[in-house]
Computed example of a mutant assay.
Amino acid sequence: MPEREGEPAQMQIGNVAARTELSIKTIRHYDDAGLVTPSARSRGGFRLYTESDVQRLLVIRRMKPLGFTLGEMRELLAALDARADGSADHEIRATAERYVDECHRRAETTCAELRTQLAYAEEFTALLAQP
């Protein structure tokens, strides 16, 4: 779909799937779950996404291996939006900041656990490679 001057470029779901390395089915699921709503629809009803939508999907993709549930993803995305909204109420932004900090701590802990698991897997792989 050609873009008009001043409007963000729009991509169809197949292009978004390729960019994010998520399946079309997964992207549709995230739409149904209310995590990422396409910015527009084509005349034929096809989902159209902007670069901002792609970035949101990439955040979700990064959260998934860390064990965040869909509900937690939704809450964290809302907190990130509130934190970035300069016009949001101070208390809303403060609450959002606390939740982002909590998620950050959890992500750090999970990353450390995954690094340990990876080290074990690499040790095991090296063991199997020995004659």
Results as ranks from 00 to 15, higher is better:
residue 49 Y to H: 04
residue 16 V to G: 04
residue 87 S to A: 14
residue 38 P to R: 05
residue 114 L to F: 03
residue 53 D to N: 14
residue 103 C to K: 02
residue 37 T to W: 00
residue 4 R to Y: 11
residue 120 Y to R: 15
residue 37 T to V: 12
residue 51 E to S: 11
residue 41 R to D: 00
residue 22 L to K: 07
residue 129 A to T: 12
residue 89 D to C: 10
residue 64 K to S: 04
residue 52 S to I: 08
residue 67 G to K: 02
residue 15 N to L: 07
residue 131 P to T: 14
residue 99 Y to V: 00
residue 11 M to C: 00
residue 103 C to R: 05
residue 24 I to R: 13
residue 65 P to H: 05
residue 10 Q to A: 04
residue 74 R to V: 03
residue 16 V to Y: 08
residue 68 F to K: 03
residue 5 E to V: 13
residue 130 Q to Y: 09
residue 94 A to F: 09
residue 11 M to S: 04
residue 77 L to W: 02
residue 82 A to S: 09
residue 66 L to V: 03
residue 92 I to K: 08
residue 57 L to H: 08
residue 122 E to I: 10
residue 78 A to H: 03
residue 62 R to M: 10
residue 28 R to I: 11
residue 62 R to Y: 02
residue 63 M to G: 01
residue 46 F to D: 10
residue 43 R to V: 01
residue 21 E to N: 13
residue 125 T to K: 15
residue 67 G to I: 06
residue 34 G to E: 07
residue 118 L to D: 08
residue 17 A to H: 09
residue 95 T to C: 05
residue 121 A to L: 15
residue 105 R to V: 12
residue 71 G to R: 11
residue 85 D to M: 06
residue 6 G to R: 11
residue 55 Q to D: 15
residue 73 M to Y: 03
residue 84 A to E: 14
residue 125 T to N: 11
residue 96 A to C: 03
residue 85 D to W: 06
residue 84 A to Q: 10
residue 2 P to E: 09
residue 33 A to F: 06
residue 102 E to W: 08
residue 104 H to V: 12
residue 64 K to N: 01
residue 16 V to Q: 08
residue 99 Y to P: 01
residue 128 L to A: 15
residue 76 L to G: 04
residue 57 L to G: 03
residue 15 N to S: 07
residue 102 E to M: 12
residue 50 T to G: 08
residue 25 K to P: 04
residue 109 T to R: 15
residue 2 P to W: 01
residue 108 E to I: 10
residue 84 A to W: 05
residue 111 C to G: 05
residue 60 I to Y: 06
residue 116 T to Y: 12
residue 36 V to Q: 03
residue 59 V to Q: 10
residue 104 H to S: 13
residue 94 A to I: 02
residue 29 H to V: 09
residue 118 L to N: 08
residue 2 P to V: 07
residue 20 T to D: 07
residue 96 A to P: 01
residue 123 E to M: 15
residue 50 T to R: 14
residue 115 R to V: 13
residue 117 Q to E: 13
residue 30 Y to D: 04
residue 3 E to C: 04
residue 11 M to T: 00
residue 6 G to W: 09
residue 56 R to M: 07
residue 110 T to Q: 12
residue 74 R to M: 07
residue 55 Q to R: 15
residue 59 V to A: 10
residue 8 P to G: 09
residue 1 M to R: 01
residue 49 Y to P: 01
residue 120 Y to S: 14
residue 106 R to A: 07
residue 11 M to N: 00
residue 42 S to I: 00
residue 39 S to Q: 07
residue 49 Y to F: 15
residue 21 E to Q: 12
residue 70 L to E: 05
